[in-house]
Design a binder for these strands. Structure first.
Lengths: 337, 337
DNA sequence: GCTTGGCACTCAACGTTCTTGAGTGCCAAG
DNA sequence: CTTGGCACTCAAGAACGTTGAGTGCCAAGC
């Protein structure tokens, strides 16, 4: 159906359009890529590619522009992920290696990605469920308030305040703290609900109401309130890439946590690279944008996702290379801490 | 120099220009505001206002537009801060009251401000220096790693990982933890350096290297690494207000922590409202924008700042009202926790 | 049967010209 | 000091023509 030359033409169109941002015509193609055939032949091929929906003309007597379907074919079959240069790799390494904190790792990662790809970067915090409890702390911060702090082995720290009756003694709190740590230390977050259920029985009856309150908040924090945090950077890059849709719509979409979650969350292969092009996106405001995302995490299991968002007219091979490289390095950093 | 009528004309020009975004002419002014004089008279006044630099014409045969100096006069002498409607107050209250976390308070505040003012909101985390230590925790999270968690009375939680020699025992850590808490509990952050200096002397000599490491990180975290966190929201609102300068520059400036810090940090009156108009801003990219900011904090002492940024052509009375109201409510929330 | 040069055709982009009308400054009269 | 009158200016928009990149089709060539 599509012989090699037609695929080569499609590839050339995508590459030229991405770099010039202007519809590409048959003559320009023949000049810039040595396809070994004349413009007239290319025109015939282009007519066919258009008929099949891979490219389109903005108007008669203009050059061709790839469609979402065209980009899809390009990404799937016509391009190879471009590895980063040695210099870029080194830059990533040193930039990330100096992070001293989970927060810091995430912040640096998102900035790095934005700078590297010159697009909007999105990084999700490592998810809670795949990690284990390292420590639970209860700190009184006032007569009727308790601060619950949960520390996980991925270095994440969760905190919540809890309202308690004034009558609760320091002792009761210490008791509960010790018991919680004894039971939960090293416990996978998935298993926490089961383990925690037994705790109240081991306490003197007077302390059980307190335990119930604390445990419910704890469960809420770890399990239900799964509200994964997501950070973005490089929004300014959107302004450069003039999207056909109003920039505002895209910015608005990016400010909604829910949209961001779906953006990263619903991508297919959890470990490898996923690319979502134009109308493949879950939200209408993002129909003129593409997303390149990847899972990342300590060791080999993916614990969260990161990626970049840009105009559908983006440098896929380069972007995919950058995203993949950053995901790997962040994984290494996380595994090391 | 400027009689009452001329001031009234300036006020009318600012109001009209803000609401229409078009240069305002003498006839339109006479129609919409009943100033009791004819367009010709207004023209004379306008000529004078222009001569003094309060207004300008984009080109001959166009209406007048306020200059930065004009806005300044308007803000200082011609406008009164517009209080929020009862409904708006209630909305703020309920929206903020449901926050369960310092993070949550800040996040909700910044979103609220952005929505209320339809502009870009900026909120600085409550500063460390004005708060007191509530608790210090040391948690081993691996053979050669320690997690230092500092909890303050404003509910802020700081964390850092520390590399330690493998030889350190659980006991030494427990010792140090106890000592730190004994000395630092309730200690104002300003006083921490002095207090902390005495700690090593009270430990057995073997534990002093560990103590030194931990203390240096602790000091760094609290004092030197003053890196206040700032969050922003409502960047999409910038796209609506068409700034004469490229939107991109402004977005870029807003992504730089340093610029944001200066934006809020260098404002005059720490407690009250501050307005910075156009070229009064510290960064060239923000010369077409204005900032309305206020200090906020638990009780009466300001611990941090918040504000909004928008085009110089903004509704100052309304924005100032919203910023003031939000600052007050956040203060109440913080004082209550 | 594919490829190619030739050729007529299309149409967005751009430049030119003209018109319109909001807005101004100035002046002389009230 | 205020006001109506008046000539003047100039951005914005409409109308029109020109240009040129790009197309589709066809008949000739390999």
């Amino acid at each position: 159906m599509l012989d090699d030359r037609k695929l080569a033409v499609l590839r050339a169109i995508v590459e030229d359009y991405v770099s010039t941002n202007e519809p590409v015509g048959s003559k320009a193609l023949a000049d810039r890529h040595n396809l070994g055939v004349s413009p007239a032949t290319i025109r015939n091929d282009m007519a066919l590619l258009e008929e099949q929906g891979y490219i389109a003309q903005p108007h008669t007597s203009a050059g061709r522009v790839p469609t979402d379907k065209g980009y899809r074919l390009f990404v799937d079959r016509l391009s190879t992920i471009k590895p980063l240069s040695a210099a870029e790799r080194r830059a990533i390494e040193t930039f990330l290696a100096n992070a001293y904190d989970l927060d810091d790792v995430v912040t640096r990662t998102v900035r790095l990605l934005a700078q590297l790809t010159r697009q909007v970067a999105v990084v999700q915090y490592p998810s809670l469920t795949r990690s284990a409890v390292r420590h639970v702390e209860l700190v009184p911060i006032g007569p009727e308030r308790l601060l619950l702090v949960i520390i996980t082995n991925t270095g994440r720290v969760e905190q919540r305040t809890i309202e308690i009756p004034e009558s609760v003694t320091e002792e009761s709190i210490a008791h509960l703290r010790a018991l919680l740590n004894a039971h939960l230390d090293g416990c996978w977050l998935n298993d926490v609900p089961g383990v925690v259920a037994e705790v109240p029985d081991r306490l003197p009856p007077d302390d059980r109401p307190l335990a119930a309150t604390v445990l419910s908040v704890l469960l809420e924090t770890l399990v239900e309130k799964h509200e994964e945090k997501i950070v973005i950077a490089g929004a300014a890059n959107l302004a450069r890439a003039d999207l056909s849709q109003s920039l505002r719509e895209v910015l608005e979409a990016l400010e909604e946590q829910v949209v961001l979650m779906r953006l990263l969350g619903e991508m297919g292969d959890p470990a490898g690279l996923t690319v979502r092009i134009g109308t493949e996106n879950p939200h209408e405001s993002l129909f003129t944008t593409s997303v390149v995302a990847s899972g990342y995490g300590a060791g080999d299991q993916a614990v969260a996702r990161l990626g970049v968002l840009g105009p559908t007219r983006m440098d896929y091979p380069g972007t995919m290379g950058a995203v993949r490289a950053v995901a790997r390095y962040v994984g290494q950093i996380l595994a090391g801490s």
